[in-house]
Nucleic acid binder design. Structure first.
Lengths: 121, 121
DNA sequence: TTTGATACTTACCAAAAGGTGCATACTGGA
DNA sequence: TCCAGTATGCACCTTTTGGTAAGTATCAAA
């Protein structure tokens, strides 16, 4: 590889928000800062390990800010950095596309599920 | 879950282009229709299995069109459907974001690599 | 003092994703 | 005839990903 990897810029973006829960995290942090347990409850079906892991990566990538209040019992707040805000902004059109075509996408997904069931049967 | 899954629309979009190579495929097909081997060479480091698999999913989701010329030796051409075009369009801002911040992202990625190396040492 | 809440780590295990290589079918060229 | 190139399928194996469960530290409430 001559260039360190990215063909499209899309690759670069995907390298940052590629993780399974990252878009969701971005989404939930876009409105306001949140404490860990708070965020976990908001997303719902994330395992603890995943959420921590993804948050750490996002933090390492400068997308989210971690504010440790050094209190007992522990209190930590997560929020988007300015950089994270720009990324969340770039995500919006895709979000709009998804919202616009959600019905179709849901059909597609249920079809996928159906064919997988059919495979088993 | 009350709703069949999607919180943000982003999820819906990600459900469609979530695959590792799908954005790249979208990107390469955005300009013009391409034959299989052609596309494979264009992307470069995709395994045959992955490309076929992702293309099949995209085809099943109505994102790409597969045109089989029924010739011997085989000739097949892939292109974006109208639906696929809208998705590719929605991907553009993210692509732009990636292009704009590519330098930073590259730094981030090499840092990731470095920390992994450090972990081994 | 035991339980529970907070945030987080680590070890272990299952499942899914992804890669390699072989097989197919057919034709044209060496 | 045998190999190459076309697109694709299939089986096996490795790597990555994700989940579960337990452990750490500290204080408050029961």
């Amino acid at each position: 590889m001559t260039t360190p990897g990215f063909i499209c810029g899309l690759d670069a973006a995907l390298a940052v928000i590629g993780g399974k829960w990252k878009p969701l995290i971005l989404f939930h942090l876009f409105h306001e800062a949140r404490r860990y347990g708070d965020l976990r409850r908001a997303i719902g079906n994330v395992s603890h390990k995943m959420l921590i892991q993804q948050l750490k990566e996002l933090e390492a990538d400068g997308i989210v800010d971690r504010l440790d209040f050094k209190e007992i019992p522990p209190k930590v707040e997560y929020s988007l950095t300015a950089f994270g805000q720009t990324l969340a902004g770039a995500l919006k059109p895709l979000c709009a596309w998804g919202a616009e075509h959600m019905i179709e996408v849901e059909k597609l997904m249920s079809r996928r599920g159906a064919s997988e069931v059919a495979k088993v049967a």
